[in-house]
Simulated scan of single mutants.
Amino acid sequence: MKKVTKGIFALIAGVLVFGLAACGDSESKTLSTKEITIGVTGGPHQQIAEQVKKMAAKDGLTINVKTFDDYNTPNTALSDGDLDANNYQTIPFLESQEKDKGYDFDIAFKTVAFPMGVYSNSIKDLKNLKKGDKIAVPNDPSNEYRGLKLFEDAGVIKLKDGVEEKATKNDIAENPLDLEVVELEASQIPAQLDEFAAAAINTNFAMGAGLSINEDSIYHEPVKDNPYPNVFVVRSENKDDEVVKTLEKYYHSDEIKQYIEDEFNGSVVPAF
């Protein structure tokens, strides 16, 4: 009987310890209001984060900015807990990653947009394209549709009705000029621009090549109310955390808006 009683007490003690540990884990999942780590890609996102970091420091909030040079690692790091948040991706890219990799993320708020443009070293207007010319678009699922849609909006091609965001050149329904559409790694297109009559280039890569959407593109997405805003992303459990709301105030402040407008000359625009 004593052995049974001891066993029951041991079991109860174990349950209590587990319960306390679980409570502790639950509390630890709330993001700190004193220090937070944000993942970004190099370039504008990093520059903006550094400005936000300065603002936060005045209020006693330390922001660690971790910079990445690819589009996949920041989400992996966020899922693994190495980051508290990230800011670098569009909603279609985020949704694709969540579906493919099972991430449990939430959008906290919109930040900026990078309007995609069409660039050329040989023509000044897409109306000057000739039969059989080569054009280039990014080959990744989240950006190829944007590139094809740009050429469609300009009246160069027509996509199949009801085409989805993961469209490729195989989804072109009409191509009156019989253009050769080349799918390339987005980062490689600026360096190979001379090989094409025109190419759709992501703004971050265009900026890296010294190209400005307002001064150099021959066609581009809407600058105002751009349909592809970048978003500040957190794990779902942290969406309503106090520090996330504080960060939104910084990112959406007049000071940051003015910085974006002054620094990027329309190639990056506020999406709030």
Results as ranks from 00 to 15, higher is better:
D161S: 13
K54S: 12
F264G: 03
E95M: 11
E255N: 08
P74Y: 11
M55G: 06
E50W: 01
S32M: 06
Y103E: 04
D125F: 12
A200C: 05
A209P: 03
G132Q: 09
K3C: 02
E215L: 10
E95P: 11
K224D: 05
S187E: 09
T33W: 02
S217Y: 01
F109N: 00
D178F: 01
T111F: 15
Y71E: 07
E263T: 12
F105S: 00
T33F: 05
V52E: 02
D125L: 07
F93K: 09
K149A: 07
E263N: 05
D216F: 01
E261H: 06
T76S: 15
E165N: 10
L31R: 04
V65P: 02
R146I: 02
S28K: 15
D84Y: 07
D140R: 02
T73L: 09
E50M: 15
Y259I: 09
Q89G: 11
P115N: 08
S267Y: 12
S142L: 01
A85C: 13
E180Q: 11
Y228G: 02
A191M: 04
A167M: 09
T203S: 06
F151I: 05
L247T: 06
Q46D: 10
N226T: 04
E195N: 13
T90E: 01
V52C: 09
D104T: 13
T73P: 08
K66D: 12
N230K: 11
N265Y: 05
E195T: 10
D100F: 10
I135D: 05
D225N: 14
S122G: 06
N202H: 08
P227F: 03
S28L: 12
G14Y: 03
G24Q: 15
G102V: 10
Q188C: 06
T246S: 04
V118H: 01
V269E: 02
K53W: 05
T76Q: 12
S217A: 12
N128L: 11
T41S: 07
V268T: 12
